[in-house]
Write a protein that binds this DNA or RNA. Structure first.
Length: 235
DNA sequence: AACCAGGACGTGA
DNA sequence: TCACGTCATGGT
């Protein structure tokens, strides 16, 4: 039978160690495994500048690799656009050219403007989830990432990787996004809020790591840290 | 050379 | 609600 979710979490944590998300550019040099910092140090991130960077990054990384996004964040920063006020008064073509490598650059330029306006209204208060979801360009995963990583809210981020992992572990179809989030959240409800946020912070980062190395669309089960507990293991 | 990447939206059934 | 097309660049 599939082990408890907490067991999955600890197996991943033992294997990969703390991931140190969100990967803010200011922290790029620090190696999460070098002991240079502790993942709890950044939840929640301290400055409005960093919260905005997280939101922008969450949008830019939609269906794209983080590596592409990093370059775009640098370009935005270097052109003075990594600030909500500046983004809102900049010509659309300037924004588009700055974020081109992240793909969907026309859509994402619009999304960044929508998010900037929203950010001005709410930050530094953590926005209510429904309000965040009402922003054009911010869906469930992006909203949850922002709530968790920018505002330290105890939200379990459910993305395509999470669903894939759960389905492979159990061998059966997972519930919808809301149902899956509830199912994954419940085992941790006895933890106090800040600790829960810290666990969810690491958990999502670890799931992404697993998805990149083993639990890919074409699975590489050899050497997977969950090989002994996964019903689909062996391919 | 197809396939995938830390999705979301619009549309028609 | 769900399936499907669209958005787009870059790495493997």
């Amino acid at each position: 039978m599939t082990p408890p979710i907490s067991d999955i979490f600890f197996r991943l944590l033992e294997t990969y160690g703390p991931r140190g998300w969100w990967p803010l550019r200011a922290l790029r040099r620090l190696d999460p495994r070098s002991g240079g910092y502790h993942p709890g140090d950044f939840s929640p991130p301290v400055s409005a500048t960093q919260r905005f960077e997280i939101g922008v990054g969450a949008i830019l990384t939609q269906n794209t690799t983080w590596k592409q996004v990093e370059g775009c964040l640098d370009t935005l920063e270097n052109t003075g656009l990594l600030v909500p006020e500046a983004l809102l008064q900049a010509p659309l073509e300037i924004i588009e050219s700055a974020i081109r490598p992240s793909g969907y650059f026309r859509m994402k330029a619009r999304k960044l403007c929508e998010f900037s306006r929203f950010f001005q209204q709410w930050d530094p208060d953590p926005p209510p989830r429904p309000q965040l979801l009402s922003v054009w360009g911010i869906g469930e995963e992006t909203a949850d990432s922002i709530l968790l990583y920018a505002y330290g809210q105890p939200v379990f981020v459910v993305d395509a990787y999470t669903r894939r992992l759960v389905e492979r572990l159990s061998g059966e179809a997972a519930p919808g996004c809301a149902g899956l989030r509830k199912k994954l959240t419940e085992p941790f409800l006895r933890l106090e809020t800040a600790r829960r946020a810290q666990v969810f912070n690491e958990f999502h980062a670890l799931v992404v790591q697993l998805a990149k190395t083993h639990c890919r669309s074409r699975p590489l089960c050899r050497g997977c840290p969950l090989e002994t507990v996964c019903i689909s293991a062996g391919r």
